[in-house]
C-alpha cells in the first residue's frame, strides 16, 4: 500500500520504529477482529486456570488455602499476570465498544421488520446476535466479582483478614453463600457461557481458521467449552454453600 508513503510529513514515533503498518493493521476492521479473537481466546485460557483453582473448593479447604497463599506469595509475578489480564480485558472491551459503535453507524435507518434466514429457529435467542449485550452483562458481573473478591469491599459481607490462614476459603464461602451473590453469580456465569458459545468458535473464524473439515468440530468444541465453563463456575454458588465449614 502506498498510504504510508503518501504522508511523509507526518513522520512520527510510529515511523521511527517502522510500525505504521502495525497501527494501520490495528485500525482496520479485520485487524480489530483479529485482536478481539486473540484477546478472547487468551481470556478463555484464563477462565480455565481460574476454574481449576476454584474447583479446589470442592477438594478441601487446606488445598484451596494453600493454592491461594501460594499465588499471593508470588507478588511480582501476580502483579505482572494481573496487569496482563487487565490489558487483555481492556483491549477486548475497547474493541467491543469500537466495533459496536462503528456497526451502529453503518446502518442509520433501521428495518421495520427483520428476520433471519438461517436455519436456527429462534434467531432472537442466538448468541451471535447478542454478543455486545451478553458481554455487557459479563462486564457488570466481573466488576461485582472484583469488588467481592479482589477488593473485598462488599458492605453486606464480613471478611476475614486476608493474612489469616483460612481466609481465602472462608471469604470465598462467605461470598458464595450470600443469597444475592448466589443469584448474581449463577446468572453471570450462564451469560458468560452464552457469550463463549459463539465467541470461542467465532475467534477461529476471525483468525481465518474455517475449513469444512474442522469447522463443525470447532463449533461443537465451542459449545462444549461454553457449557463446561458455565457449569463449572455455576457449581460454585450452587453447591459450595452446602459444604461444611
Amino acid at each position: 500500500m502506498s498510504d504510508s508513503a503518501a504522508s511523509p510529513s507526518k513522520a512520527g514515533i510510529l515511523d521511527w520504529f517502522g510500525l505504521r503498518w502495525f497501527f494501520r493493521f490495528l485500525s482496520s476492521s479485520i485487524g480489530q477482529k483479529f485482536v478481539m479473537a486473540i484477546t478472547g481466546l487468551l481470556l478463555c485460557g484464563f477462565l480455565v486456570v481460574h476454574l481449576e483453582g476454584n474447583l479446589l473448593l470442592f477438594v478441601s479447604a487446606e488445598k484451596y488455602n494453600a493454592y491461594a497463599h501460594f499465588l499471593h506469595s508470588q507478588e511480582e509475578l501476580l502483579m505482572v499476570a494481573e496487569t496482563g489480564l487487565f490489558v487483555l480485558f481492556l483491549a477486548h472491551l475497547y474493541l467491543a465498544f469500537a466495533t459496536a459503535w462503528g456497526n451502529a453507524k453503518a446502518r442509520v435507518d433501521q428495518y421495520a421488520v427483520k428476520q433471519t434466514k438461517q436455519a436456527k429457529g429462534l434467531w432472537a435467542a442466538s448468541p451471535s446476535t447478542w454478543m455486545f449485550a451478553s458481554g455487557s452483562v459479563v462486564l457488570g458481573f466481573v466488576i461485582l466479582h472484583l469488588i467481592d473478591m479482589k477488593f473485598q469491599a462488599r458492605p453486606d459481607i464480613v471478611y476475614l483478614d486476608e493474612h489469616a490462614p483460612n481466609a481465602p476459603y472462608a471469604n470465598a464461602l462467605a461470598v458464595l453463600s450470600n443469597p444475592i451473590s448466589r443469584v448474581v453469580y449463577t446468572i453471570g456465569v450462564i451469560v458468560l457461557g452464552f457469550h463463549l458459545s459463539h465467541g470461542f468458535a467465532s475467534a477461529f473464524q476471525s483468525l481465518g481458521l474455517n475449513h469444512p473439515k474442522y469447522t463443525p468440530l470447532i463449533k461443537w468444541i465451542s459449545r462444549l467449552f461454553a457449557f463446561a465453563i458455565a457449569a463449572g463456575f455455576a457449581s460454585l454458588p450452587i453447591l459450595v454453600p452446602s459444604l461444611s465449614r
Binding site: 479485520i30 483479529f34 456497526n103 433471519t116 434466514k117 438461517q118 467465532s202 474455517n210 475449513h211 469444512p212
Partner: peptide
C-alpha cells in the same frame, strides 16, 4: 460495518457464497 461472524450473509446470499471465504479473507 464490521463482521461479527453471525453467518447471516451466508444464509441470505443467492449465489451460495460461503463463510469460509470470509475466513480466507481474514487469513
Amino acid at each position: 460495518g464490521n463482521c461479527t461472524n453471525t453467518g447471516e450473509c451466508e444464509a441470505a446470499c443467492p449465489a451460495g457464497i460461503k463463510l469460509t471465504n470470509i475466513a480466507q479473507l481474514n487469513r
